[in-house]
Each structure stands twice: as structure tokens, then as C-alpha cells.
């Protein structure tokens, strides 16, 4: 991909049309689930009106506008809406794994671009951070369409190499503790010394919600490589021969156990975990993800 417009595919944008990227934790507490803000009334800067949806706080209903238009509108305050959406992307060499002609890094690009576009529509601030042992990039956070285009350009320039960085200090959070923060982490969770988990622990904040997109190829999940194949690790360059059906079955068992363990671990860490099968289009993953968040909020 050479053009930022290639990241914003109409079919993906259309799939998320009408949906919102809701931040679950828009309040001071760090408890799971949606909590309403106690601060209402004067002092909160008006942002805009939006149509009433089932579950909205009735205290935010603008009755005067209802009297004039005979329709229900919610008065949105800027403080409630304005969140920082941070995209954290793993650019280690393992993200070059390919399935059905699409690499993990490209898949992540599509997801970030589409979610970023949705956040842009909502007026959220965006930032992008990529990391591998050779390079760490940070961009933002800033709102606005112009910055979004810069973000897309930066997304295209990302190169995958090496491993995930081992030193957690490099990844000091760039947001304030009070800022409402939605961190979307795109990775394949291939680590060597628990470095990814250490990084995520460093990013945990009271006002922050972390969602982890675990990108896996269908051929990785099923080990569906035909015939006698030799697998070469993209990061370590180790090679292994995979032949018999027993090896593949055993691998699938271990992988299943691993994924179950990850779900439990992230639940304990109060982070959202989503296993993304690259066999499915981003256009089907994102609506599912967003609707699930809306449902859980309601």
C-alpha cells in the first residue's frame, strides 16, 4: 500500500457506519462496566446534540429542544465525549506473518484506519505508537482531520523488524493520569521474556481502558499448511519441520490452551481481549466488536 486512501476502504467504513466507538470507562473510577458521570449541568461545555438512544442518561435530555422539535435529543458535553484514542501497534517481525495474501501488519493498518476514522467522526483525539526493538515511533495525540491524515501516512511508513522491545521503561505512557484514555493494542502476542505484558502493565491507568486485538492467521490457528513443510520463525529465524498429523493436533491443543490462558490473564488484568482471525474481513470484525461494546455498555 502506497496511498493513505487505500487504508480507508469503503467496504470497511460502510461496515461501521452508524456505530460508535464508545469508551467504557469515561468516569473517574476504574471499575468495569459503564458508569455515568456525576457531573452535569453548568460548568460542562456544550459540545453538540445527538439523537436520543435507549440507555442514555435522561438528565442530559434537552427538554427545550424537545418542546420545539417534538423529538428527543441528548445534550453532549465535551468532557464526556472527548477521549484520547491511542493506537499501539506491535511492529516486530512476527507481524509479517501472511495469511490469505494479507500480512498481520496490513490487517492492523486496516483496523486502525477504520477505527481511527470512526473516532475522528466522534471528535476524539488520536495518537499512534509503534514499537519494535529497533524503532519506536510516537505520533499525537491530536484531533482533527489533518492529523488523521498524518496518522494514516505514518501507518503506511511502519516497518516490521526484530522483536518486541524488552525494556519496559521505553514505554512510559504519554497521557496524563486524569485523561480518559482508550488504548487499542494490535499485536500477535509473540514475546520472549514477558515484555508485552510488562508493557501493558505500565500502561494501566485509572482513567484508561485497554483493548487488545490478538491477530492470528487462520493457518496459524489450524496449522493448515499442506504437505511436509518447514516453518521458519520470522523473528528468531529458527526452523522446524512439521510433517505428521499428530504434530499438528498437538500444536492446536497447545495453542488452544494458550489462548484460554491469555483470556483469563487479560480478564484478571481488567483488559478487553479480542482474538482476531485474519480469515475474517475487518469489515466483519469491527461491527462485531463495536456492537459488542454497545451491548455491554447497555
Amino acid at each position: 500500500m502506497n496511498n493513505i486512501h487505500e487504508l480507508l476502504l469503503p467496504k470497511y467504513l460502510h461496515s461501521v457506519k452508524g456505530l460508535e466507538l464508545l469508551a467504557k470507562k469515561t468516569v473517574a473510577s476504574f471499575l468495569p462496566g459503564l458508569h455515568q458521570s456525576k457531573r452535569t449541568g453548568a460548568g460542562m461545555e456544550f459540545s453538540n446534540y445527538r439523537t436520543y438512544q435507549s440507555g442514555d442518561d435522561l438528565r442530559m435530555l434537552d427538554w427545550k429542544l424537545y418542546a420545539r422539535s417534538d423529538r428527543f435529543y441528548i445534550r453532549e458535553a465535551e468532557q464526556e465525549k472527548n477521549i484520547h484514542v491511542q493506537f499501539l501497534i506491535d511492529t516486530s517481525a512476527s507481524m509479517l506473518h501472511e495469511d490469505s495474501g494479507l500480512q498481520k501488519i496490513d490487517y492492523a493498518r486496516f483496523l486502525i484506519a477504520t477505527i481511527g476514522w470512526l473516532a475522528l467522526q466522534q471528535g476524539d483525539r488520536l495518537s499512534l505508537q509503534s514499537m519494535n526493538e529497533h524503532q519506536i515511533t510516537r505520533l499525537g495525540p491530536k484531533p482533527g482531520r489533518k492529523f488523521f491524515q498524518r496518522l494514516l501516512y505514518q501507518l503506511l511508513q511502519l516497518n516490521c523488524s526484530g522483536k518486541f522491545p524488552n525494556t519496559a521503561n521505553h514505554f512510559a505512557p504519554t497521557t496524563s493520569k486524569k485523561e480518559k484514555h482508550l488504548l487499542l493494542f494490535f499485536t500477535d502476542l509473540y514475546e520472549h521474556h514477558d515484555e508485552i505484558f510488562q508493557t501493558l502493565k505500565n500502561y494501566r491507568r485509572p482513567q484508561q481502558e485497554i483493548i487488545l486485538f490478538h491477530l492470528m492467521g487462520q493457518n496459524e490457528l489450524e496449522m493448515s499448511f499442506k504437505g511436509s513443510v518447514t516453518l521458519e520463525d520470522l523473528e528468531t529465524k529458527q526452523r522446524i519441520q512439521l510433517g505428521s498429523k499428530e504434530d499438528r493436533l498437538k500444536y492446536k491443543e497447545l495453542l488452544s490452551e494458550r489462548i484460554d490462558g491469555l483470556k483469563d490473564q487479560f480478564t484478571t488484568m481488567q483488559m478487553d481481549y479480542l482474538l482476531v482471525n485474519m480469515q475474517e474481513s475487518p469489515g466483519s470484525i469491527l461491527p462485531y466488536f463495536l456492537k459488542k461494546r454497545i451491548h455491554s455498555r447497555n
Binding site: H97, G217, F225, S228, T230, L231, E232, T236, K250
Partner: peptide, 19 residues
């Protein structure tokens, strides 16, 4: 004979005894 070589994200989840 090694057969086809395929680049994958990681082989770390294939346990050592299987290797």
C-alpha cells in the same frame, strides 16, 4: 527433506519435546 519453507510469526508454541 525439509519440504516447503514457510515464514510464520513464531514457532515458540511448539513445545521443545515435540521439536
Amino acid at each position: 527433506k525439509e519440504g516447503r519453507t514457510i515464514l510464520v510469526g513464531s514457532i515458540q508454541w511448539i513445545p521443545e519435546q515435540e521439536q
